[in-house]
Design a protein around this nucleic acid. Structure first.
Lengths: 209, 209
DNA sequence: ACACCCATGTTAACGCTGTTAAGTTTATGA
DNA sequence: TCATAAACTTAACAGCGTTAACATGGGTGT
């Protein structure tokens, strides 16, 4: 009897419907302007129904963010296979990180620009963080490969990876937070930052501090 | 008759009392966890009284942020007078920016990590932005002086200044947003980022892209 | 001296929020 | 056919920012 299976399928469908509605509102209006009631109205269910499928609002949004960030990870993994030169790959990886953030500002905002809430339940950590971590792990691997192949000389791999991440995050988050600021032309600005960053990594002579 | 003056003084005092209470809560609990009612309770007035002294919540918080950011600007201005070498001054200025942000995470969060609200009243723009702009202007001036004195070669001053700003902002904001992340030791991390940044600015040879 | 007025502050309320407890409907398996 | 469990809704709680309407007390003009 396929009854239970049909039920399970229907349940899954509604869950997906909620996700779709939430993502749509979320992308268009931004995290803090999307209420559970708005999502409920869009799918024509009562607000409390959502709680049958998601623990709470942040759980729901985490699920949305996860699937989007998985795309970034895939994109970067693809880069590993298509770009031979590790230095060029690193530069392209950093660039794709920025471009991804600018393409999905609301997702990026929630994942990297909001203070993480105090950990109440240590085991129920949001999934989206995992994907963010994975993206960073990719970046570090790219950097490590440059060092292995003697293309870069780096003292502290971990610290350098974190610094590089911070730099591309800085540009991404600032442009998201201040869209009305008189920025230099976008691609030129990205080039300038990546140029400085890559030169800073390749230059061997220490600078006076 | 000093009556009006006394009244004005009393009004000023209550205004200051509100600011003090709000700043205290704000620094300790963070922006989104401070409600007007909490502030009112702390000063033992009704919530609506606050609206006699401040347009709304964001106006109140802007006033607090402004006075804090003024300290950063003062600090950087002081640097201009005490550090002779422009390159060293630039590096110290960038460093003080990061340290300031980490010292006042809640202020920094509101000023640079939150999406700016849609401009409703174009003339009633928040004051705090002004101070943030001033801090950035300082940074650009430091950079410009390095170029003037032929200590740095830079193609596009504006884009480079924005990129440098983005880099230090990146580190500051990431460490604020993810305090529980397994960061490298704070000072070492700052050194690593500033080292890469300064090398990237001073290195003349272009890197392959 | 007395009435008025205005600054100051309060109470009550509106419409929103996330979330929970309790109640209702619906369909299924025995 | 009937109890049961799953699915969903209604009503409510406690909080939020903000506004309108009301109270009060003291300085001012006549």
């Amino acid at each position: 009897m396929g009854v239970q299976e049909r039920r399970a399928r229907e349940k899954k469908e509604l869950r997906q419907e909620i996700l779709d509605a939430a993502r749509d509102l979320f992308v268009r209006e931004g995290f803090e302007n999307v209420s559970m009631r708005k999502i409920a109205e869009k799918i024509e269910y009562s607000p409390t129904t959502i709680y049958l499928y998601f623990r709470d609002k942040s759980d729901l949004l985490d699920c949305i963010i996860e699937e989007t960030f998985a795309r970034l990870v895939r994109k970067q993994t693809l880069l590993e296979q298509t770009v031979a030169d590790p230095v060029e790959r690193l530069e392209k990886g950093l660039r794709s990180y920025v471009e991804f953030g600018l393409k999905h500002p609301n997702h990026y905002k929630v994942t990297f620009m909001m203070p993480e809430p105090p950990v109440t339940d240590p085991e129920l950590c949001p999934r989206s963080r995992e994907m963010g971590q994975k993206a960073f792990a990719n970046l570090r691997n790219m950097l490590a490969e440059c060092v292995e192949k003697k293309l870069l000389e780096i003292d502290d791999l971990e610290a350098t990876a974190q610094a590089a991440w911070a730099m591309v995050h800085g540009l991404t988050s600032l442009m998201i937070a201040k869209p009305h600021y008189k920025w230099a032309e976008r691609n030129h600005l990205i080039d300038t930052l990546l140029g400085t960053l890559m030169r800073g990594l390749t230059a061997k002579s220490p600078v006076a501090v």
